[in-house]
Write a protein that binds this DNA or RNA. Sequence first.
DNA 1: AACACATGCAACCGCCTCTAT
DNA 2: GATAGAGGCGGTTGCATGTGT
Length: 216
Amino acid sequence: MGRSPCCEKAHTNKGAWTKEEDQRLVAYIKAHGEGCWRSLPKAAGLLRCGKSCRLRWINYLRPDLKRGNFTEEEDDLIITLHKILGNKWSQIAGRLPGRTDNEIKNYWNTHIKRKLLSRGIDPKTHRPIVAATAAAAPSCSHRQDDDDDDLGPSCSPETSGPCHHSDDDDSAPTPHPGGIDLNLSISPPPREPPSPSPLPDDEDARRNTKGQAARP
DNA sequence: AACACATGCAACCGCCTCTAT
DNA sequence: GATAGAGGCGGTTGCATGTGT
């Protein structure tokens, strides 16, 4: 069905959020809670798209966010969950309290992928690269983003038959030996109701540098 | 010091799903 | 059952910063 744009693009700001916008958003949600995102910007006096407000809130302003480096345990958990769920970042995020899907997605793409590759593991199939490439030769892997850094030939969508992405993704979850609770029946993770609080401490630092202040 | 390239993160885009009418 | 609106998600892009030459 044809969809109208989610907002009047001509009258909305785009790009990095300013401190004032953040404050307005936080103040509004603090007072009214998360309600209708579409009408929120207007009600809060923001020249932003509702989606943009939602994203900003979920990814940065929510008080229960845990910011900072991922721990080894979190790394392992992400890898394990990705093996089972595939790129279901929101579901993965649901099992990592304080982490957002966007954060995990970025972390996966920038760190974990590389980490797995350096271990000789295909980040998509979670199989050893040698075996994966050998096995994949005729049939598999629509790995569009094997990106660049990937080794081994991968098939192109037009040349391959059915994709056998293995265990993960769409087939039944395989039990994981890690001792982690991987009962993945999809139920929304327990997320405490937001108890709105002032902006995160490092918010100032992050702002205006487009978030780079978190760098080491 | 200046430049080019690499990296990492915030934010946007477009599609899908769910729900109300 | 069909349609429209809103929320949600995953993929992708833009750009500031770091690093190497």
